[in-house]
Design a binder for these strands. Structure first.
Lengths: 120, 120
DNA sequence: GCATTGTTCAACCAGATGGTTGACAAGACG
DNA sequence: CGTCTTGTCAACCATCTGGTTGAACAATGC
């Protein structure tokens, strides 16, 4: 799990971390503020923030004792690109499959319509 | 980790599984075919497919002894929706912040640039 | 019926993950 | 100075994960 994309997906696999990301779209927050709504220790939240940080999803600045956590938007593009690439290819393939099936129904009789199993 | 979104993100956090998804955009494959390029046992690949299946990313039909693995495109929408929602909000906030900063530079001298902190 | 092929199940193991508590560093402030 | 707040680090624990091997199951082909 060394590459960034893996770290990003892994970070967002946790509902608590996704919720933190959601709240960080509204405003920056300190670790203590982030921890408030959840029924876990501040240390646990600190660990979550660290995971998000290593994934490049957030950054932290220093401001007196506080270390406000700030959401980084660029990483979302990384995910979007990955997803869009494969989604598009998958959809193209379905279109092609539909065409093939249509041609099959067209050409020969309706005798072998049971071949594709549960294919959509 | 009971909800689907968590399962989807967790499934894609593994590079091997992402690669399998990539290959499945080209064509359906059996577990044995999927296992070929990787240096792991067929059982391990079977486990990976199970993870993808429980995330709703793939489905399996039966075709003689074979159980071809088929990519499901709809789940990609689930991720895209989540990502897009927060990305848009994050970007809007940055735009607003930029506007605020520009106005501050405009209006009074550069004497109190430390005030906004974590205010919403 | 029996062997073959493709796939899954069960038990096990090492390492990662998410949580805990306790100690401690760094600033703010009385 | 001492103390309070904020946050991190370290050690520990239970559970999950990704891998292994060996056995079992399912469908087909002789």
């Amino acid at each position: 799990m060394t590459d960034q994309l893996s770290r990003v997906f892994a970070a967002l696999a946790d509902p608590t971390r996704r919720d933190m990301v959601a709240r960080l779209t509204e405003a920056d927050h300190t670790v203590n503020e982030l921890a408030a709504p959840y029924d876990v220790s501040v240390q646990a939240v600190s660990k979550h923030v660290k995971v998000l940080e290593e994934a490049g999803l957030v950054s932290r600045s220093r401001e007196a004792q506080r270390r406000p956590v700030h959401l980084e938007a660029e990483v979302f593009d990384l995910m979007t690109k990955w997803i869009e690439r494969y989604r598009r290819r998958a959809e193209e393939r379905y279109a092609a499959l539909d065409a093939v099936l249509a041609r099959m129904q067209d050409e020969d009789g309706p005798s072998r319509t049971d071949q594709e199993g549960t294919a959509s």
